[in-house]
């Protein structure tokens, strides 16, 4: 388990990370979302032991990560801009990480390279950005570390490759003790893969919750209620996060138990109603608006 408590990091005049505390459970896919400059990369670099926090602690499986070889053997960090040695081939990088990570699976790497249509003998500097990204992901996955930290994982990957990578991550989670932490500014990319999501904004963490919990605690209802008074009563009875009226159609985002909400809506004898699923993006918009942030400005 990764435990982050009171971590702060400042770069000159900029407070990059401000008092972050969170827990990342094992076996979960943790999504780290936030705008550009929110502190995602800094946070991941601190988790990886690249940066030393100014204050606070990052414990991985109960041990400090900074300058701790034993803990770092459990971590593989894929930064937003992966570095490859000059003139190196993918096989060369595989050999290097094979030295560093005792559990590195070279056969699996070469197998996946083939499956992704990548030539392991070709120099990486001749690869496209997306191909380099694929190599990075394969190196990270084949290192067989317990934790994989990926910064802007899906940048540069085409939709097919994005799906392939997601499948790969899912497969790893099923087959072994594996906890990926994936950062992205694109909520849609994380929606179908993450179990838990943390939202960073201006160096601070707005919240960190299980996606399923969030989905089961907030709903969007579209309904048409004949009586004006009944409508007002309904709005009072429900925990409304947001409500929009378009003509006679009322769209409300509501917190609470699904059955109870439906019961309350039906009690008002609506002409029509339906409960719609919320996308991750909508959940975030709702949640963050609730705490006073106009997320629309910074979440795509």
């Amino acid at each position: 388990m990764i435990e982050v408590s009171g971590v702060q990091k400042r770069f000159a005049e900029t407070q990059a990370i401000y008092n972050i505390s969170t827990k990342i459970q094992e076996g979960q896919v943790f999504g780290l979302v936030g705008t550009n400059g929110a502190g995602k990369s800094t946070f991941l670099r601190i988790l990886s032991g690249v940066l030393k926090p100014d204050s606070g602690a990052v414990m991985i499986d109960g041990e400090e990560v900074y300058e701790n070889e034993a803990v770092k053997r459990k971590i593989f960090f894929i930064p937003d801009e992966q570095y490859f040695f000059p003139n190196v081939t993918a096989k060369g990088m595989c050999d290097y990480y094979g030295l560093i990570y005792p559990e590195f699976d070279r056969d699996k790497f070469m197998r996946w390279m083939k499956r992704f249509g990548l030539n392991g003998e070709r120099k990486i500097n001749t690869f496209s950005k997306g191909m380099k990204r694929q190599v990075s992901m394969l190196l990270g996955i084949c290192a067989n570390t317990k934790y994989l930290f990926c910064d802007e994982t899906f940048d540069g990957l085409d939709p097919v490759m994005r799906q392939a990578v997601k499948s790969l991550l899912a497969e790893e989670i099923i087959n072994r003790d594996f906890t990926p932490v994936i950062s992205s500014h694109n909520l849609r990319e994380l929606e179908d893969i993450c179990d838990h999501v943390g939202l960073l904004h201006k160096g601070g963490i707005l919240f960190s919750r299980d996606l399923e919990d969030m989905k089961h605690q907030i709903y969007k209802i579209q309904c048409v209620i004949r009586e004006k008074d009944a409508e007002l009563e309904l709005l009072k009875e429900l925990k409304v996060v947001k409500s929009i009226r378009a003509g006679s159609l009322l769209t409300i985002t509501v917190r609470g138990n699904r059955e109870e909400i439906i019961k309350k809506v039906e009690a008002k004898e609506p002409l029509f109603y339906e409960v719609l699923p919320l996308s991750l993006e909508e959940i975030f918009i709702s949640e963050t608006e609730g705490v006073g942030y106009d997320v629309k400005r910074f979440v795509f």
Binding site: S48, E69, K72, I75, P79, E81, Y83, I100
Partner: peptide
């Protein structure tokens, strides 16, 4: 002098 390279060298399990 390179952030890209440091991300690799300082994240791998080898002490500075």
């Amino acid at each position: 002098h390179s952030r890209k390279q440091l991300d690799v060298y300082h994240s791998i399990p080898i002490k500075r």
